[in-house]
Design a protein around this nucleic acid. Structure first.
Lengths: 182, 182
DNA sequence: CAAGATATGTCAACATGACTGACATAAATT
DNA sequence: AATTTATGTCAGTCATGTTGACATATCTTG
Protein backbone atom coordinates (compact mmCIF):
# COMPACT_ATOMS: atom_id res chain seq x y z
CA UNK A 1 0.00 0.00 0.00
CA UNK A 2 1.10 3.52 -0.59
CA UNK A 3 1.13 5.44 2.65
CA UNK A 4 -1.69 7.80 3.41
CA UNK A 5 0.42 10.42 5.04
CA UNK A 6 -0.40 13.70 3.43
CA UNK A 7 -2.05 16.25 5.61
CA UNK A 8 -4.72 18.71 4.54
CA UNK A 9 -4.58 22.40 3.91
CA UNK A 10 -1.89 24.69 2.56
CA UNK A 11 0.99 23.90 4.88
CA UNK A 12 3.90 23.98 2.49
CA UNK A 13 7.19 22.95 4.11
CA UNK A 14 9.90 25.11 2.60
CA UNK A 15 8.27 26.48 -0.50
CA UNK A 16 9.66 29.89 0.39
CA UNK A 17 6.18 30.20 1.69
CA UNK A 18 6.70 32.51 4.64
CA UNK A 19 5.36 35.42 2.66
CA UNK A 20 1.79 34.10 2.21
CA UNK A 21 0.81 36.37 -0.68
CA UNK A 22 -2.42 34.70 -1.63
CA UNK A 23 -5.79 36.49 -1.63
CA UNK A 24 -8.88 35.12 0.12
CA UNK A 25 -7.74 31.68 1.15
CA UNK A 26 -10.74 31.13 3.36
CA UNK A 27 -14.35 31.24 2.15
CA UNK A 28 -13.47 29.42 -1.05
CA UNK A 29 -15.83 26.57 -1.96
CA UNK A 30 -13.15 23.90 -2.32
CA UNK A 31 -15.76 21.32 -1.40
CA UNK A 32 -18.12 22.04 -4.27
CA UNK A 33 -15.27 22.65 -6.71
CA UNK A 34 -13.83 19.21 -6.08
CA UNK A 35 -17.19 17.45 -5.91
CA UNK A 36 -18.08 18.89 -9.29
CA UNK A 37 -14.80 17.67 -10.72
CA UNK A 38 -15.21 14.10 -9.52
CA UNK A 39 -18.95 13.92 -10.12
CA UNK A 40 -18.62 15.09 -13.70
CA UNK A 41 -15.64 12.84 -14.33
CA UNK A 42 -17.57 9.74 -13.33
CA UNK A 43 -20.79 10.96 -14.94
CA UNK A 44 -19.23 11.25 -18.40
CA UNK A 45 -17.15 8.14 -17.74
CA UNK A 46 -20.31 6.05 -17.95
CA UNK A 47 -20.84 7.05 -21.55
CA UNK A 48 -17.16 7.03 -22.48
CA UNK A 49 -16.82 3.30 -21.93
CA UNK A 50 -19.86 2.48 -24.00
CA UNK A 51 -18.75 4.79 -26.79
CA UNK A 52 -15.50 2.90 -27.26
CA UNK A 53 -17.49 -0.09 -28.47
CA UNK A 54 -18.87 2.09 -31.26
CA UNK A 55 -15.55 3.69 -32.14
CA UNK A 56 -16.90 7.04 -31.09
CA UNK A 57 -15.73 9.68 -28.65
CA UNK A 58 -17.32 12.30 -26.45
CA UNK A 59 -17.69 14.64 -29.38
CA UNK A 60 -19.95 12.17 -31.14
CA UNK A 61 -22.02 11.72 -28.00
CA UNK A 62 -22.65 15.42 -27.58
CA UNK A 63 -23.71 15.80 -31.19
CA UNK A 64 -26.00 12.77 -31.09
CA UNK A 65 -27.51 13.86 -27.81
CA UNK A 66 -28.57 17.31 -28.92
CA UNK A 67 -29.67 16.22 -32.38
CA UNK A 68 -31.90 13.59 -30.82
CA UNK A 69 -33.24 15.89 -28.16
CA UNK A 70 -33.92 18.85 -30.43
CA UNK A 71 -34.95 17.36 -33.77
CA UNK A 72 -34.50 19.65 -36.73
CA UNK A 73 -31.60 21.46 -35.16
CA UNK A 74 -29.62 23.40 -37.75
CA UNK A 75 -25.87 23.05 -38.06
CA UNK A 76 -25.48 26.64 -36.89
CA UNK A 77 -27.54 25.93 -33.76
CA UNK A 78 -25.38 22.96 -32.94
CA UNK A 79 -22.28 25.11 -33.25
CA UNK A 80 -23.77 27.56 -30.74
CA UNK A 81 -24.64 24.86 -28.26
CA UNK A 82 -21.40 22.95 -28.44
CA UNK A 83 -19.27 26.06 -28.80
CA UNK A 84 -16.89 24.51 -31.26
CA UNK A 85 -15.91 25.48 -34.79
CA UNK A 86 -17.66 24.13 -37.84
CA UNK A 87 -14.46 22.37 -38.86
CA UNK A 88 -14.46 20.45 -35.61
CA UNK A 89 -18.13 19.67 -35.87
CA UNK A 90 -17.74 18.73 -39.52
CA UNK A 91 -15.59 15.72 -38.82
CA UNK A 92 -17.77 14.02 -36.26
CA UNK A 93 -20.98 14.99 -38.01
CA UNK A 94 -19.70 13.48 -41.25
CA UNK A 95 -18.98 10.19 -39.50
CA UNK A 96 -22.40 10.13 -37.87
CA UNK A 97 -24.05 10.84 -41.23
CA UNK A 98 -21.97 8.27 -43.10
CA UNK A 99 -22.66 5.58 -40.53
CA UNK A 100 -26.36 6.30 -40.48
CA UNK A 101 -26.84 7.71 -36.99
CA UNK A 102 -28.08 11.08 -38.24
CA UNK A 103 -29.83 12.26 -41.38
CA UNK A 104 -30.02 15.70 -42.92
CA UNK A 105 -33.12 17.30 -44.37
CA UNK A 106 -33.09 20.46 -46.43
CA UNK A 107 -34.93 23.29 -44.75
CA UNK A 108 -38.39 24.14 -46.05
CA UNK A 109 -38.25 27.90 -45.72
CA UNK A 110 -34.54 28.22 -46.30
CA UNK A 111 -33.13 25.59 -48.57
CA UNK A 112 -29.57 26.38 -47.51
CA UNK A 113 -30.20 24.92 -44.10
CA UNK A 114 -29.52 21.29 -43.27
CA UNK A 115 -31.84 20.24 -40.49
CA UNK A 116 -30.53 17.35 -38.43
CA UNK A 117 -32.47 14.34 -37.18
CA UNK A 118 -31.46 11.17 -35.40
CA UNK A 119 -32.21 7.92 -37.19
CA UNK A 120 -33.59 4.95 -35.21
CA UNK A 121 -29.99 3.74 -35.01
CA UNK A 122 -28.98 7.09 -33.57
CA UNK A 123 -31.91 7.13 -31.17
CA UNK A 124 -30.92 3.74 -29.85
CA UNK A 125 -27.38 4.92 -29.15
CA UNK A 126 -28.52 8.06 -27.39
CA UNK A 127 -31.05 6.14 -25.32
CA UNK A 128 -28.44 3.64 -24.26
CA UNK A 129 -26.02 6.30 -23.10
CA UNK A 130 -28.73 8.35 -21.41
CA UNK A 131 -29.85 5.19 -19.67
CA UNK A 132 -26.45 4.70 -18.09
CA UNK A 133 -26.30 8.28 -16.94
CA UNK A 134 -29.88 8.20 -15.72
CA UNK A 135 -29.08 5.16 -13.62
CA UNK A 136 -26.32 7.09 -11.88
CA UNK A 137 -28.54 10.12 -11.37
CA UNK A 138 -31.43 8.06 -10.05
CA UNK A 139 -29.12 6.33 -7.58
CA UNK A 140 -27.74 9.68 -6.44
CA UNK A 141 -31.20 11.17 -5.97
CA UNK A 142 -32.65 8.13 -4.24
CA UNK A 143 -32.34 9.33 -0.67
CA UNK A 144 -33.09 12.97 -1.36
CA UNK A 145 -36.55 14.41 -0.74
CA UNK A 146 -38.47 16.48 -3.32
CA UNK A 147 -37.37 19.78 -1.81
CA UNK A 148 -33.76 18.63 -2.06
CA UNK A 149 -34.21 17.56 -5.67
CA UNK A 150 -35.69 20.95 -6.45
CA UNK A 151 -32.71 22.64 -4.84
CA UNK A 152 -30.35 20.58 -6.99
CA UNK A 153 -32.15 21.65 -10.14
CA UNK A 154 -32.17 25.26 -9.03
CA UNK A 155 -28.45 25.12 -8.25
CA UNK A 156 -27.50 23.61 -11.60
CA UNK A 157 -29.61 26.14 -13.47
CA UNK A 158 -28.06 29.00 -11.56
CA UNK A 159 -24.57 27.75 -12.44
CA UNK A 160 -25.25 28.33 -16.14
CA UNK A 161 -24.48 31.58 -17.93
CA UNK A 162 -27.61 33.15 -19.32
CA UNK A 163 -26.28 36.04 -21.26
CA UNK A 164 -26.39 35.11 -24.93
CA UNK A 165 -28.25 31.82 -24.50
CA UNK A 166 -28.31 29.44 -27.43
CA UNK A 167 -31.48 27.78 -28.69
CA UNK A 168 -31.20 24.80 -26.41
CA UNK A 169 -30.74 26.96 -23.34
CA UNK A 170 -33.73 29.03 -24.37
CA UNK A 171 -35.71 25.84 -24.50
CA UNK A 172 -34.45 24.74 -21.11
CA UNK A 173 -35.07 28.04 -19.41
CA UNK A 174 -38.18 28.95 -21.37
CA UNK A 175 -37.37 31.54 -24.03
CA UNK A 176 -37.69 34.54 -21.74
CA UNK A 177 -34.14 33.93 -20.58
CA UNK A 178 -31.58 36.72 -20.47
CA UNK A 179 -32.23 37.37 -16.78
CA UNK A 180 -28.86 37.16 -15.04
CA UNK A 181 -29.40 38.14 -11.39
CA UNK A 182 -31.28 40.57 -9.14
CA UNK B 1 -32.00 36.26 -36.19
CA UNK B 2 -32.13 32.55 -36.64
CA UNK B 3 -35.62 31.21 -36.25
CA UNK B 4 -36.65 29.43 -33.10
CA UNK B 5 -38.73 26.83 -34.76
CA UNK B 6 -37.60 23.47 -33.52
CA UNK B 7 -40.03 21.57 -31.41
CA UNK B 8 -39.17 19.39 -28.44
CA UNK B 9 -39.08 15.65 -28.07
CA UNK B 10 -38.24 12.87 -30.47
CA UNK B 11 -40.65 13.64 -33.26
CA UNK B 12 -38.51 12.75 -36.25
CA UNK B 13 -40.14 13.58 -39.59
CA UNK B 14 -39.14 10.89 -42.05
CA UNK B 15 -36.18 9.29 -40.36
CA UNK B 16 -37.70 5.90 -41.11
CA UNK B 17 -38.82 6.38 -37.54
CA UNK B 18 -42.10 4.54 -37.60
CA UNK B 19 -40.50 1.53 -35.95
CA UNK B 20 -39.55 3.20 -32.66
CA UNK B 21 -37.00 0.58 -31.56
CA UNK B 22 -35.55 2.51 -28.63
CA UNK B 23 -35.58 1.22 -25.05
CA UNK B 24 -37.00 3.25 -22.13
CA UNK B 25 -37.55 6.62 -23.75
CA UNK B 26 -39.50 7.88 -20.80
CA UNK B 27 -38.13 8.14 -17.28
CA UNK B 28 -34.75 9.30 -18.49
CA UNK B 29 -33.32 12.29 -16.62
CA UNK B 30 -32.72 14.45 -19.67
CA UNK B 31 -33.13 17.49 -17.45
CA UNK B 32 -30.27 16.67 -15.09
CA UNK B 33 -28.10 15.31 -17.91
CA UNK B 34 -28.30 18.57 -19.82
CA UNK B 35 -28.05 20.78 -16.76
CA UNK B 36 -24.85 19.01 -15.77
CA UNK B 37 -23.44 19.52 -19.24
CA UNK B 38 -24.10 23.25 -19.32
CA UNK B 39 -23.28 23.87 -15.67
CA UNK B 40 -19.92 22.15 -15.95
CA UNK B 41 -19.14 23.84 -19.25
CA UNK B 42 -19.59 27.30 -17.78
CA UNK B 43 -17.99 26.32 -14.47
CA UNK B 44 -14.70 25.31 -16.08
CA UNK B 45 -15.04 28.14 -18.57
CA UNK B 46 -14.36 30.62 -15.78
CA UNK B 47 -10.92 29.19 -15.24
CA UNK B 48 -10.18 28.55 -18.89
CA UNK B 49 -10.22 32.22 -19.80
CA UNK B 50 -7.90 33.15 -16.98
CA UNK B 51 -5.53 30.31 -17.81
CA UNK B 52 -4.98 31.63 -21.32
CA UNK B 53 -3.24 34.64 -19.85
CA UNK B 54 -0.72 32.31 -18.25
CA UNK B 55 -0.27 30.15 -21.33
CA UNK B 56 -1.71 27.20 -19.44
CA UNK B 57 -4.56 24.84 -20.11
CA UNK B 58 -7.00 22.81 -18.09
CA UNK B 59 -4.43 20.13 -17.48
CA UNK B 60 -2.20 22.61 -15.67
CA UNK B 61 -5.12 23.82 -13.60
CA UNK B 62 -6.01 20.35 -12.42
CA UNK B 63 -2.44 19.60 -11.41
CA UNK B 64 -2.00 22.91 -9.62
CA UNK B 65 -5.31 22.54 -7.84
CA UNK B 66 -4.64 19.14 -6.32
CA UNK B 67 -1.01 19.88 -5.50
CA UNK B 68 -2.07 22.99 -3.64
CA UNK B 69 -4.94 21.34 -1.88
CA UNK B 70 -3.07 18.21 -0.84
CA UNK B 71 0.49 19.33 -0.14
CA UNK B 72 3.07 16.60 -0.34
CA UNK B 73 1.10 14.64 -2.89
CA UNK B 74 3.30 12.09 -4.64
CA UNK B 75 3.45 11.81 -8.40
CA UNK B 76 1.78 8.41 -8.22
CA UNK B 77 -1.10 9.88 -6.19
CA UNK B 78 -1.60 12.57 -8.76
CA UNK B 79 -1.76 9.98 -11.50
CA UNK B 80 -4.50 8.16 -9.59
CA UNK B 81 -6.53 11.28 -9.06
CA UNK B 82 -6.26 12.65 -12.58
CA UNK B 83 -6.45 9.24 -14.22
CA UNK B 84 -3.92 10.05 -16.88
CA UNK B 85 -0.59 8.45 -17.81
CA UNK B 86 2.67 9.61 -16.33
CA UNK B 87 3.79 10.74 -19.79
CA UNK B 88 0.82 13.08 -20.01
CA UNK B 89 1.36 14.33 -16.50
CA UNK B 90 5.08 14.66 -17.15
CA UNK B 91 4.67 17.36 -19.73
CA UNK B 92 2.49 19.72 -17.74
CA UNK B 93 4.27 18.99 -14.48
CA UNK B 94 7.61 19.83 -16.06
CA UNK B 95 6.30 23.18 -17.22
CA UNK B 96 4.88 23.98 -13.79
CA UNK B 97 8.18 23.04 -12.16
CA UNK B 98 10.28 24.97 -14.67
CA UNK B 99 8.17 28.07 -14.31
CA UNK B 100 8.21 27.93 -10.53
CA UNK B 101 4.59 27.12 -9.73
CA UNK B 102 5.42 23.82 -8.06
CA UNK B 103 8.46 22.47 -6.22
CA UNK B 104 9.50 18.92 -5.54
CA UNK B 105 10.87 17.58 -2.30
CA UNK B 106 12.47 14.18 -1.91
CA UNK B 107 10.48 11.91 0.39
CA UNK B 108 11.84 11.40 3.90
CA UNK B 109 10.98 7.76 4.33
CA UNK B 110 11.31 6.84 0.70
CA UNK B 111 13.86 8.88 -1.16
CA UNK B 112 12.52 7.74 -4.53
CA UNK B 113 9.38 9.74 -4.02
CA UNK B 114 9.01 13.31 -5.24
CA UNK B 115 6.55 15.10 -3.00
CA UNK B 116 4.86 18.02 -4.68
CA UNK B 117 4.15 21.43 -3.17
CA UNK B 118 2.77 24.64 -4.60
CA UNK B 119 5.05 27.67 -4.40
CA UNK B 120 3.59 31.05 -3.43
CA UNK B 121 3.36 31.77 -7.15
CA UNK B 122 1.42 28.55 -7.60
CA UNK B 123 -0.80 29.27 -4.62
CA UNK B 124 -1.69 32.64 -6.07
CA UNK B 125 -2.73 31.08 -9.36
CA UNK B 126 -4.86 28.42 -7.69
CA UNK B 127 -6.49 30.96 -5.41
CA UNK B 128 -7.32 33.21 -8.33
CA UNK B 129 -8.98 30.41 -10.28
CA UNK B 130 -10.78 29.04 -7.24
CA UNK B 131 -12.00 32.56 -6.55
CA UNK B 132 -13.68 32.79 -9.92
CA UNK B 133 -15.32 29.42 -9.50
CA UNK B 134 -16.33 30.19 -5.92
CA UNK B 135 -18.03 33.37 -7.09
CA UNK B 136 -20.16 31.35 -9.47
CA UNK B 137 -20.97 28.77 -6.82
CA UNK B 138 -21.82 31.39 -4.21
CA UNK B 139 -24.14 33.11 -6.66
CA UNK B 140 -25.82 29.82 -7.50
CA UNK B 141 -26.31 28.92 -3.84
CA UNK B 142 -27.50 32.35 -2.81
CA UNK B 143 -31.21 31.67 -2.80
CA UNK B 144 -31.01 28.11 -1.55
CA UNK B 145 -31.63 27.28 2.11
CA UNK B 146 -29.27 25.15 4.21
CA UNK B 147 -31.29 21.98 3.66
CA UNK B 148 -31.09 22.55 -0.07
CA UNK B 149 -27.35 23.13 0.08
CA UNK B 150 -26.96 19.91 2.03
CA UNK B 151 -28.97 18.07 -0.60
CA UNK B 152 -26.69 19.44 -3.33
CA UNK B 153 -23.61 18.18 -1.49
CA UNK B 154 -25.23 14.82 -0.90
CA UNK B 155 -26.19 14.54 -4.56
CA UNK B 156 -22.72 15.36 -5.85
CA UNK B 157 -21.10 12.91 -3.45
CA UNK B 158 -23.50 10.19 -4.49
CA UNK B 159 -22.63 10.79 -8.15
CA UNK B 160 -19.01 9.78 -7.50
CA UNK B 161 -17.74 6.21 -7.86
CA UNK B 162 -16.42 4.92 -4.57
CA UNK B 163 -14.96 1.61 -5.54
CA UNK B 164 -11.20 1.99 -5.67
CA UNK B 165 -11.05 5.54 -4.31
CA UNK B 166 -7.80 7.46 -4.68
CA UNK B 167 -6.16 9.36 -1.84
CA UNK B 168 -7.99 12.56 -2.51
CA UNK B 169 -11.36 10.84 -2.54
CA UNK B 170 -10.48 9.08 0.68
CA UNK B 171 -9.78 12.48 2.17
CA UNK B 172 -13.06 13.88 0.87
CA UNK B 173 -15.18 10.98 2.02
CA UNK B 174 -13.19 10.24 5.17
CA UNK B 175 -10.96 7.19 4.64
CA UNK B 176 -13.61 4.61 5.55
CA UNK B 177 -14.87 4.82 2.00
CA UNK B 178 -15.46 1.72 -0.12
CA UNK B 179 -19.17 1.70 0.71
CA UNK B 180 -21.00 1.64 -2.61
CA UNK B 181 -24.71 1.28 -1.82
CA UNK B 182 -27.11 -0.52 0.48
C1' DC C 1 25.07 -8.43 -0.76
C1' DA C 2 22.76 -9.52 -5.01
C1' DA C 3 18.42 -9.61 -7.28
C1' DG C 4 14.21 -7.85 -8.05
C1' DA C 5 10.51 -4.54 -7.41
C1' DT C 6 9.09 0.26 -7.20
C1' DA C 7 8.92 5.45 -8.13
C1' DT C 8 10.01 8.47 -11.28
C1' DG C 9 11.55 10.48 -15.70
C1' DT C 10 12.04 10.52 -20.65
C1' DC C 11 12.11 9.45 -25.79
C1' DA C 12 9.29 8.50 -29.77
C1' DA C 13 5.14 7.76 -32.19
C1' DC C 14 0.36 8.30 -32.56
C1' DA C 15 -4.97 9.65 -31.84
C1' DT C 16 -8.57 12.79 -30.74
C1' DG C 17 -10.64 16.87 -30.79
C1' DA C 18 -9.98 21.42 -30.44
C1' DC C 19 -8.12 25.69 -33.27
C1' DT C 20 -7.10 29.31 -37.43
C1' DG C 21 -7.25 30.69 -42.14
C1' DA C 22 -8.65 30.21 -46.73
C1' DC C 23 -11.73 29.09 -50.11
C1' DA C 24 -16.06 26.96 -52.63
C1' DT C 25 -20.98 26.40 -53.43
C1' DA C 26 -25.78 27.18 -53.21
C1' DA C 27 -29.43 29.84 -51.88
C1' DA C 28 -31.42 33.90 -49.85
C1' DT C 29 -31.55 38.94 -49.50
C1' DT C 30 -30.89 43.59 -51.05
C1' DA D 1 -26.57 41.81 -60.19
C1' DA D 2 -24.21 42.10 -56.03
C1' DT D 3 -23.89 40.77 -51.44
C1' DT D 4 -24.71 38.08 -47.51
C1' DT D 5 -25.67 33.77 -45.32
C1' DA D 6 -25.46 28.61 -44.37
C1' DT D 7 -22.80 25.05 -45.10
C1' DG D 8 -18.82 22.24 -46.45
C1' DT D 9 -13.95 21.36 -47.00
C1' DC D 10 -8.70 21.57 -47.39
C1' DA D 11 -4.50 22.32 -44.84
C1' DG D 12 -1.88 23.11 -40.92
C1' DT D 13 -1.30 23.61 -35.87
C1' DC D 14 -1.91 22.87 -30.84
C1' DA D 15 -3.20 20.66 -26.37
C1' DT D 16 -3.75 16.67 -24.24
C1' DG D 17 -4.49 12.18 -24.10
C1' DT D 18 -2.54 7.27 -25.45
C1' DT D 19 1.31 2.92 -25.94
C1' DG D 20 5.63 1.05 -25.68
C1' DA D 21 10.37 1.05 -24.48
C1' DC D 22 13.90 2.11 -21.61
C1' DA D 23 17.00 4.58 -17.82
C1' DT D 24 18.03 5.69 -13.01
C1' DA D 25 17.76 5.77 -8.23
C1' DT D 26 16.22 3.62 -4.33
C1' DC D 27 13.84 0.32 -1.50
C1' DT D 28 12.80 -4.55 -0.33
C1' DT D 29 13.76 -9.29 -0.16
C1' DG D 30 16.02 -13.78 -0.47
Amino acid sequence: MTDINFSRGPTSPDSQGATSPAPRLGELRWDIIELLFFAYRDFVGDADHELEAFGFGRAHHRVMHFVYRYPGLKVADLLDVLRITKQSLGRVLKQLLDEGYIIQKTGNNDRRQRLLYATPKGEALVAKLAGLQTDRITRALRDINPEGVAAIGQFLRAMIDRDDPDKVLEAIFGTGSKKPRE
